[in-house]
Every structure is written in C-alpha cells, then in structure tokens.
Amino acid sequence: MAAENSKGEVNDLRRMTMIWVVLSVVADLLFWFLVGPHVPPGRMTETAVNNQRTFNVLLVIALPVLIGVWVYLGYAATMWSAKREGVAESVGGEGARTNRKVQVWWIALTSVIVIFLAGYGTFAVIAEHGSGGGEGPNPVWSPSGATQAETAALSGSSSWTPGHVLVVQVIGQQWKFTYRYPSFGGFESDKLVLPVNTEIAFNVTSLDVIHSFWAYQLSVKADANPQLNNVAYTETKHTGNFTVRCSELCGLWHGSMYNFGKVVSSTDFMNWASTTQSANAANTANLPPFAWTYVPDANGASGGWYPDGTVTPYSTVETYGSKTPAS
C-alpha cells in the first residue's frame, strides 16, 4: 500500500473504484427516482415532504458509503482469499502498518460527511419548525402566528379561520388518544380532523404515563407527558386519511393504542367542527376548562378522570411560551 507502485496494486484499486462508481451511481439514481418518492412518511404535510427529502438525501449519501465498504470487503474476500490460486503471500513491515495519506484522507472524508450531515440536519430542523418533532412547552422554532394562536387558545378567546394556525390539543391516556379544539369552544373528540393547507400546532399532553403521539403520514411525533405540554408543528398539504399510533410503551394495550384521522378541505372541516361543537356542547360543559395540562385526581390516576370543581392549569410555569406568558 506504500511507496511501491506495482501494477497489480493499481489494478486492484482501479477495479474497485470502477465497480464502486458504477454501483453507487446506479443505486443512487434508482433510489432517488424510483424509491425516493414513495419513502415514508409520504407527502401529506410540509414536514412529511421535508422529512422524506432529508431521509432520501441521507440515503443517497449513505448508499455509496455502504457500497464502497461492501465492494471492498467483497473484493478482498474473493480476490485475496488464500484458497485462490496464485494469491501473493501477505507482506508485513512498515508499509503494511501505516499509510499516512490513506489515514488522513479517510479521517478528512468522514469528518466532512458527518459535519455536512449535522449541518444539513440542523438547517432542516430549524427551517421546518422542529420537523414535526415535539419541541416541549417552549418551542424555539415556531411558525409565524403560532404563538398568538396558542396564547389565544389558552385565554379562551381562540377562533379559527382558514389560513391561520389551528391549535389542536392531543390528550393521551391509557389507552387512547382524544383531541380538543380550543378554537371551537374546547370540545373534545376521539376523531382527529384537520383542515388542509393549514399550519397545525399540536399540543400534546397525557393524563397518566408517557405516550407518544405519532401521526404517521403527517410526520409528527411528540411524546405525551403528564403535566407537560409538548408542542409540534406541521402544515397540511393534501387531503386524505392518516394513522395515529402510540410509539412510546405505555402499558398493556400500547399496541392497540391507535386511531385514524383525516385531512379535509377547510369548508368540510368547518362543517365538521361546528357540528361536533354543538353536538358535544353538553359534554364540553362538563369538561375542565381548556388548559395545557390536566391533573387527574387521586382516584383517576389512570382512568381519565378530571378533578371536581373549577380547575385552573395546574402550574403556571407549564403554560405555553415563556416568551409570551398567558395571563
């Protein structure tokens, strides 16, 4: 590997490089054009589109790496096997021990790839408002209008018109998800219906143990923690159905903790929301006032009970957005 430049050595490296380049280009192209557009989580929301793109970019970089190592291993395994006729004896010595050039190149190359990936990931997560991941009670990457919408939701003065941020609360409990719509009187439903072309602010919390709200096709995932409001954003782009699953082990029926939601047109959504609001009005009156977190009382630690009497958000520090604390 060192100074001596025998013909065989050049041939080995050249052959490997040729195989590698051809295979990598073919694999990358095949993946990008044939598989890439179908990679989960699809294209239903802005975050889905972007997370799919990030996945594809990562895989396009990863494929040549994988193929490079595999080609090398395969080549070595077949061409330098002791079973093969005429394989030269191994040569030891200083040349086989180190090769500064190769080492420096390897380290430099891996560092560049890794730092590029970290930079790209950082850019993506900031540009996409957390990429649909849970940002906790005080999101740092919010889309415009989200903070106002959330503040309005908590103060009970929330309403929604198409084109604005829709605040939806996701409440996990053993073992189901329910959803509250503060912009429509705070009714609670076990159906998740969303308007299309709308920025959604999911406020995820739990009544008992940790769940994880995973709206698969929306590319939203946020852990539902008791006593904590975990905010995740996405922008719906297409109508359709999606699956919601719990992706954090939450006890016996964790596997059965799923339901389905749909993204519909703004008019359909308005119809559904106002119908449900009036249909559920009697129930809504019995619910605790809309808050970011709820504390079940001692008897209802895991049963979805709410406390008696008037309830205020349990903790003032848990309210949304320390930047603009709700009064």
């Binding site: 990562l58 895989l59 790496v65 890794v114 939203v220």
Partner: peptide
C-alpha cells in the same frame, strides 16, 4: 458487514428530521 448497516442507520436516527419518522 453488519456493523456498517447498524452504524449508517444510526446516522439516520441521529438526524432530527428523520428521527421523527423512525424514533420508537
């Protein structure tokens, strides 16, 4: 062979946007 796959998928997991899909 195996660890390469394990390692490369680890990079996917560490990427926050991709993590949204693959976490848990």
């Amino acid at each position: 062979f195996n660890f390469l796959i394990g390692g490369v998928t680890g990079v996917f997991l560490s990427d926050v946007p991709v993590n949204v899909t693959v976490h848990g």
